[in-house]
Design a protein around this nucleic acid. Structure first.
Ligand SMILES: [Zn+2]
Ligand SMILES: [Zn+2]
Ligand SMILES: [Zn+2]
Ligand SMILES: [Zn+2]
Lengths: 137, 137
DNA sequence: ATAAACCTTAGAGTTAACACTAAGGTCAAG
DNA sequence: CTTGACCTTAGTGTTAACTCTAAGGTTTAT
């Protein structure tokens, strides 16, 4: 299977596949006499692993770590894998908390603004951003 | 007030102030005979506006828009400001939803893994990432 | 045999919001 | 009058995950 075909199968771009190979996420495949990459089922499996790991929020760097562990299962522990997962989950939770603060502030600002098509000289949102006491306490 | 002094007052870096000026977020101040930037209260107010807008999640690009509206209040409406705010809030909400999906998946994965220091050959997390049916349905 | 569709590499571009560096001019204190 | 702290510009580096471009070689179908 050449790169275009594999890319179509897993719904990724050929650029992405070459990039993953360069980053050590996808095994370098054999090459044809003319230098074309020749992929097999193993590569498709790797790409599906990558896809699923991305779908739960892992970065490519983290996925590379997971793939390595998966490749050398005997030399790694469940603890290691679980730690990676929990650490990622906590980072995600932190980011969610930050965004929820944003969301609350934006909601509060929007609520107080009349939203009319009249000139904005009195706009409470602009006032809040200007004044020291516009937001919070 | 020179740039270092102002930067200290608002707790930002001098690089950041020059960057804001270049991006049109901070008015270009007068210069001394030797070319030093000379800031006043107006600039401090602008920086505080920027700080507060950042604190509720606006990007610098969005802040530039808000500053422009704030500067020409008569030519803009509350509706415009409120729309910006609501649009941003909805984007934030979307991102939160995505991260919450990540969080749920990661929690589920972690829950199923024994986390022991034994070899990872049986690890349910790796299995889930490998298998088609490991996650979701 | 030739055109369309595919493949190759290397390298630059994208986005955000700065941080860092170099090479040099200025200002206050002692 | 010299040190040290401050300022200037222009330009490069950072992170993530690719995308795009250029310049060319290969395969397949007609
Ligand atoms: Zn209003
Ligand atoms: Zn308003
Ligand atoms: Zn286990
Ligand atoms: Zn496990």
């Amino acid at each position: 299977m050449r790169i275009g075909e594999l890319a179509k199968q897993v719904d990724m771009s050929t650029d992405a596949l070459r990039y993953y190979e360069q980053q050590g996420l996808l095994s370098a495949p054999q090459r044809s006499a003319s230098g074309y990459r020749q992929y097999g089922g193993k590569h498709m499996a790797q790409l599906r692993f990558i896809r699923r790991a991305k779908d739960v929020g892992f970065s490519l760097e983290e996925i590379a770590e997971l793939l390595k562990i998966n490749f050398e299962k005997a030399e790694h522990s469940c603890q290691e894998v679980k730690d990676l997962t929990l650490k990622k989950r906590d980072l995600v939770a932190q980011r969610i908390a930050e965004l929820q603060r944003f969301h609350a502030s934006l909601s509060q600002l929007a609520e107080q603004c009349c939203g009319s098509s009249a000139p904005a000289q009195h706009c409470s949102i602009l006032t809040a951003l200007e004044d020291i006491d516009g937001l919070n306490q």
